Amino acid sequence: MDRETIQSLIKQCSLGLFDLACAVSGHPSWDLNLPVGVIDARRSKPKLMVSAIGTINSTLKASSTIAHPLMVRLFERFEDVGLEEALTEMKRGEDGEAFCEVWQAYRDERRCGDTPMWSIEDATAFVVQSREAHADREVACVAILPGEPHRILTFSVPIAFLTRD
């Protein structure tokens, strides 16, 4: 599934990815100014945006709470029983007080502008991935896929593939 999704996104964004591959080729060494691709595929036509890896969190807001184990447990229960029931269970559980603190921090994050798209840990892993991709002469990309909640997919594409005739 993910491989087919990635192939489709590459095809739909080929012109912009060509330009991005050329820009990445112009960076002889990895640094925080290295351009990466961000594909917003939540609508019918994916949109490619380019961001410097050092400012990726201004393009995709990172959350300090969504990777917390209690929030992960909430999201898992949410899929099975719905939001209201999952919240009730979490608040009444043995970690109820700790959960309420994390839940409030999560709600505060959401009120302060754009909705967080991924965790700080995910963003950090992507920065590391971009460094490895650059060393392999590849373009690092992140895609936002539709769903409730959305899905994030990271991948890299060889520069030679994107710039071939």
Rank of each mutant, 00 (worst) to 15 (best):
M49W: 00
M49P: 10
I53C: 08
G54D: 01
G54P: 01
N57T: 15
T59W: 09
A62L: 11
S63Q: 00
I66F: 04
A67R: 09
H68Q: 04
P69E: 08
P69A: 02
M71K: 07
V72Y: 05
R73E: 02
R73A: 12
F78I: 12
E79F: 11
L83T: 03
L83Q: 15
E84I: 15
T88S: 15
E89Q: 13
E89F: 02
M90K: 01
M90Y: 00
K91M: 12
K91A: 09
R92K: 14
G96R: 06
E97F: 06
A98E: 05
A98L: 12
E101K: 14
A105V: 02
A105C: 00
R107I: 08
R107T: 08
E109Q: 05
R111W: 10
G113D: 07
G113F: 14
D114Q: 13
T115L: 14
T115N: 01
S119Q: 04
I120A: 07
I120N: 01
E121A: 10
D122Y: 07
A123L: 00
T124I: 08
T124G: 08
V127C: 12
V127S: 10
V127A: 02
V128F: 04
Q129H: 15
S130C: 05
E132P: 11
H134D: 01
H134M: 04
A135S: 11
D136L: 14
D136H: 14
R137I: 04
E138L: 05
E138G: 14
E138V: 03
C141W: 04
V142G: 11
A143W: 12
I144T: 04
I144A: 03
I144S: 11
I144K: 08
P146M: 11
G147Y: 00
E148M: 10
E148I: 02
H150Q: 14
R151P: 12
R151W: 06
I152G: 07
